[in-house]
Design a binder for these strands. Structure first.
Lengths: 140, 140
DNA sequence: AGAAATTTGTCCGTATGTATC
DNA sequence: AGATACATACGGACAAATTTC
């Protein structure tokens, strides 16, 4: 029972099985899937593996999970562009100092500043945007 | 991209990146770091590698992990050449969303956003300016 | 109103197989 | 051969949101 993964990984096999149940109507849209605990027993897999399988379906937009509630089967809505889960993106760029920042850093307006930005998303919704400003490289 | 590790091991590179985000204030003290799962996606690294990176930071006292909770950025400060120089000011205000932020938050230009700004000084010299943006209350 | 049970979220430690440098 | 990294899988534990009693 260690961890041989010939051919298909278990979580993928499980995901396929659940997908079929949903698409076939066995698990109607809007209803709750069996709990992770139940699926654990049914597939004789670790909870982490079950969660991985559900994550696949969530990414595919087939299910939606709510903390403390359960995982609902979604109405199959295969859209063109695919959505993204939760993640954070980071970007770094150089910008000219506006008057306010110039005053803070005590540099001329237009001087090069480094801006680092992070965007936190939850379920695709932007929660926070953090921007950090620093002086551009030159001296230390 | 399998496993090229020229020079620095992957986990060390990731640790350095996270360290910079914390020390720069991109990840403010007291806030939760992205989950291991999220970091796994962002850095395209295995969980083990992420955990190894976080372990480095934990060892350095930069973060503290709580079982079942998450990993917090510590308020650990750079006490190298301290003196009475270190100081930080915080300001909170409401601002109208500019086009860029409006697009990120998916709101109209001019919508109310909450901006929190922190200015870190060392020996009177401004080191970093951190601005965090959030949606104004209400709606949703 | 409150306590307990349920369920998902996250982390921990460990382990095996695979692949590359 | 060894170090590094990745993918997968297990089991246990605590945290937090929700529901039930």
């Amino acid at each position: 029972m260690p961890t041989p993964h010939y051919g298909q990984p278990r979580y993928r096999v499980i995901a396929d099985e659940l997908r079929e149940r949903i698409e076939s109507g066995l698990i109607p849209p809007g209803t709750l899937l069996p709990t992770e605990s139940t699926l654990t027993a049914e597939f004789r897999a670790a909870r982490g593996t079950i969660r991985q399988a559900i994550a696949v379906l969530r990414e595919a937009g087939l299910v939606a999970t709510e903390h403390g509630r359960g995982t609902y089967a979604s109405a199959r809505r295969h859209e063109s562009g695919l959505e993204e889960g939760s993640a954070s993106e980071t970007r770094k760029r150089q910008i000219p100092a506006d008057p306010e920042l110039a005053a803070l850093f005590d540099v001329d307006v237009g001087a090069v500043l480094i801006e680092q930005q992070r965007v936190d998303r939850t379920n695709g919704v932007v929660r926070t945007v953090v921007r950090t400003y620093r002086l551009g490289r030159v001296s230390k």
